[in-house]
């Protein structure tokens, strides 16, 4: 079992390294497509974490939804719009620099404090018994979703419906109106007018 534990830890470290590395890369990269690929790496490593945590269903859904759907859309949009690399621009809001320093200081202080507090906390967290857990299985999640969480589930479905309608409205092609006018001579003037999303 020690070997298995060690193996698990090793995998964890590898995944964590992948996640953090990809995350940093995502922020650092100025090419959006690289950033997107880095983010996919993060998602996949997160899926690995979920597997380690005994949540295969969530892991699968993570890949399907994030990697398979959302990021595909993002990549698609990046390719469609042929997004350029970010150009460095002079910083326009100078006050952000001290704000950032201040925020970072606070963040570090809080992190240190929280780590200290957790270390001092008498609460002991049980180890995950991922191998024998029934929690992450499809059946338990399905039962939970359709009993206790039925209302949130349905609300989510309505939210998605709204998102579909909204996305279609936002992205649909501009409607072209043909305005036909007749002057005194009976001559017709046709004017094409584009009805854009922002004109609606």
């Amino acid at each position: 079992m020690i070997i298995a534990d060690l193996f698990q830890t090793l995998i964890w470290i590898v995944l964590a390294g992948l996640a953090i590395g990809s995350g940093v890369a995502m922020v650092v990269q100025r090419n959006p497509l690289y950033a997107a690929i880095s983010l996919i790496g993060v998602f996949i490593s997160f899926a690995g974490f979920y597997l380690l945590l005994g949540a295969p269903f969530i892991a699968a859904v993570q890949v399907i939804v994030y990697a398979g759907a959302i990021m595909v859309l993002v990549v698609f949009v990046i390719m469609l719009l042929n997004v350029e690399e970010e150009v460095r621009k002079p910083l326009r809001l100078k006050f952000l620099i001290p704000a950032a320093i201040f925020g970072a200081a606070i963040l570090f202080a809080q992190a240190a404090f929280i780590i200290y507090s957790v270390g001092a906390s008498p609460v002991r967290v049980p180890n995950a018994d991922a191998a024998n857990s029934q929690i992450g299985l499809t059946k338990s999640i399905g039962t939970g979703l359709f009993t206790d969480y039925l209302l949130p589930f349905e609300i989510t479905s309505i939210l998605i419906l709204m998102a579909i309608v909204g996305a279609i409205t936002l992205a649909r092609r501009p409607t072209v109106l043909l305005l036909v006018e007749e002057d005194y001579d009976g001559k017709k003037h046709v004017e094409r007018r584009t009805l854009k999303i922002d004109n609606i």
Binding site: A55, F57, I58, V61, Q62, V65, Y66, A69, I70, L73, V74, V77, I135, G136, I141, G144, L145, D148, Y149, P152, F153, T156, S157, L159, I160, M162, A163, I164, G166, A167, I168, T169, L170, A171
Partner: peptide, 20 residues
């Protein structure tokens, strides 16, 4: 985990609208 499921659904909706 149920919450994560719902968060993912919201993220998907957000992606649709956001990308639009």
């Amino acid at each position: 985990q149920l919450f994560v499921f719902i968060v993912m659904a919201v993220a998907a909706a957000e992606a649709a609208v956001g990308l639009g």
